[in-house]
């Protein structure tokens, strides 16, 4: 505790850095997965291809990706963009299957009925399919969020791990308190992100959370 107080500026700064570096991949991965998931769900072929490609991408060890990305991107090894890009790739790899499943989870008869009453395909996608895929998308996004926050620490090995620095530093100095502080703060960030996502879901998807009330209590006109 005393160590934490004495190094509060360092820990606070690293936490901010951690938030900053993990928010971009989470949002970026989510946005990229909307068209990818739609494509995968729309055409059988693209689904197979996408799932294979991103399946392979996900098997690349994170450290190897951190190290090789600078030469691919032409960036300096210490540039935080490397870590951000790598984590975005992982976010997409984790999420693309879930996004495909999310669009597949939209009930067939709802889509049919939207067609029948005259939705154009664009308005049907944005106002029917996308919101109805929301609950499954959100579930996947929560996994991505937690994974990204924890995976970011590995970036410390290439100089951009935010709170991961505490792990390496604590290990080198044989100082468990510092490692513990790192773990606790990483956990707190992961939990806070998760709760924010849940809250956003509740606000944007009120229909998904309302409990089914007994139809009997709502009856008007006798049998109806």
């Amino acid at each position: 505790m005393q160590w934490l107080w004495e190094n509060r500026d360092l820990v606070f700064g690293l936490s901010l850095e951690h938030v900053r570096l993990s928010v971009i991949p989470i949002i970026g991965g989510f946005i990229a997965c909307i068209p990818l998931g739609w494509l995968a769900n729309r055409f059988r072929m693209t689904r197979a291809i996408q799932l294979t490609i991103f399946g392979i991408l996900f098997t690349i060890p994170s450290l190897a990706l951190f190290v090789t990305l600078p030469s691919v991107l032409g960036t300096k090894i210490l540039n935080p963009i490397n870590v951000v890009v790598a984590l975005t790739i992982y976010a997409i790899a984790i999420m693309v299957r879930g996004a495909a499943d999310a669009f597949a989870s939209v009930p067939r008869d709802v889509i049919e009925s939207a067609n029948a009453v005259g939705f154009s395909s664009a308005s049907r996608f944005w106002t029917v399919e996308f919101p109805l895929a929301g609950p499954v998308l959100l579930a996947n996004l929560r996994v991505v969020s937690v994974t990204t926050v924890s995976l970011l620490s590995v970036g410390a090995l290439v100089g951009n791990g935010a709170l991961g620095y505490l792990f390496i530093n604590g290990y080198q100095r044989d100082f468990p308190t510092e490692i513990m502080i790192g773990i606790v703060f990483t956990l707190v960030i992961a939990v806070v992100f998760d709760q924010i996502l849940v809250l956003i879901g509740r606000i944007l998807m009120p229909w998904a959370r309302r409990p089914r009330r007994s139809p009997r209590a709502l009856m008007v006109r006798g049998a109806a």
């Binding site: 009930p107 008869d109 709802v110 049919e112 009925s113 939207a114 029948a116 029917v128 919101p131 109805l132 929301g134 998807m205 229909w207 998904a208």
Partner: peptide, 9 residues
Amino acid sequence: MQNSGLLPH
């Protein structure tokens, strides 16, 4: 349509 086809959201 059958099952009303209403938009659940």
